[in-house]
């Protein structure tokens, strides 16, 4: 089990700000954040590659913050496929075991076993350059996993792969890392869907801080802050400036918004968040179509209301001509309310 306390760094780009968290063995933690949120900095600080200004890192109750990198029982897989070009696939994976002092035959046996698990059993004698990008990244993953480190870290491991290869490796991922019940797995990504699909626990970072954490479905349904909601939502969630007055909710100053099932906060300004599925075709609100785009079997429609812009998700492929007007309804059960300081203040009456 890995515990970090008040981790603070002074890195040139993004510094970690007072991060505390407890990671349990056997769990997969996906760390979601935009570029520059501090994801890589967190991994590097754990590894000992970036130095701490403050804070402690404990593995099974023992501080490892001052240990050299090689004594922390951590492995890191990078975004770029990093392999030894002059070694065979087998020797690439056997290499860390040889460095641990294992005999050549034993190291190769373990490496071959790991490569077979990861689906590369037929490629042991190839050089990395003779493999596809997805296979090369699997070699890097095998080399990180064969050490049986307590902490396995993957820093946007699929970012440099083709869309379909990413889809395939995401699907395979749980099987690839199965049997690592003694390890903590940390996986960073900028893609909300990837974070939700792969993590038992999702951690959201912005500006060097952890701003939310929890089971992905719960976080999606109840993001604690506006920032977290924005990072988690794909397609984007829309924020509209609104107002509460005498028990009614308004878009802008005076356009009445649906509020059935919502406990309204005291009178004053609020931010109204509309998920893409909160808006449906047909209803009392008029909007102009800014743009419509297809995404698989769905159509994402950018709407311009007189109180702001919002995105609607329509099931099926439908053409909406830009510049035309449509009427839509807004579903109160998919509305969230945020205070001006960004806190989620949605409470429902049922």
């Amino acid at each position: 089990m890995l515990q970090i306390d008040q981790l603070t760094t002074a890195d040139p780009k993004v510094s970690l700000q007072d991060i505390s968290f407890q990671f349990d063995a056997g769990n997969i933690y996906t760390i979601l954040g935009r570029t520059g949120a501090g994801k890589t900095e967190l991994l590097r600080a754990l590894m000992g590659l970036n130095s701490l200004v403050k804070g402690d890192i404990q593995l099974d109750g023992q501080s490892i913050a001052k240990r050299p990198v090689k004594d922390r029982s951590m492995s890191l897989v990078y975004q770029q496929f990093i392999n030894y070009p002059h070694l065979s696939v087998l020797d690439n994976v056997a290499f860390p075991l040889r460095r641990q002092g294992k005999k050549k035959s034993e190291a190769q046996l373990l490496a071959a076993k790991m490569l077979t698990t990861i689906g590369l059993g037929d490629f042991l004698q190839r050089r990395p350059a003779q493999l596809s990008g997805g296979q090369q990244q699997r070699v890097a993953l095998a080399r990180a996993m064969v050490k049986k480190s307590r902490i396995l870290m993957l820093d946007e491991p699929l970012a440099n792969l083709d869309y379909k290869l990413r889809e395939q490796l995401r699907e395979e991922f749980p099987r690839l890392v199965a049997g690592n019940d003694d390890s903590v797995i940390l996986y960073t990504t900028t893609e909300p869907r990837e974070a939700m699909e792969l993590g038992n626990t999702m951690i959201v970072m912005t500006d060097g801080r952890i701003v939310a954490s929890g089971p992905p479905a719960d976080l999606f349904a109840h993001p604690p802050t506006k920032d977290a909601a924005s990072v988690i939502s794909d397609p984007p969630i829309s924020f509209i400036a609104g107002f509460v007055r005498s028990g009614a909710l308004y878009f802008g100053e005076d356009q009445l918004a649906p509020n059935n099932g919502l406990h309204l906060p005291p009178d004053g300004p609020v931010t109204i968040a509309l998920r893409p599925d909160a808006i449906e075709l047909g209803g009392a609100f008029n909007a102009t179509i800014g743009l419509s785009e297809f995404s698989g079997s769905e159509t994402i429609v950018h709407l311009d209301f007189d109180f702001g812009r919002a995105i609607m998700l329509v099931e099926g492929i439908e053409t909406f001509e830009a510049g035309t007007h449509i009427s839509v309804s807004i579903q109160a059960e998919h509305i969230m309310l945020f205070a001006l300081d960004g806190q989620n203040i949605t409470t429902r009456t049922k």
Partner: peptide
């Protein structure tokens, strides 16, 4: 980043 991709795509279409 994914969220900015969205805005940039919209811009390209415009």
């Amino acid at each position: 980043d994914p969220q900015m991709k969205f805005m940039l795509r919209r811009k390209l279409r415009e």
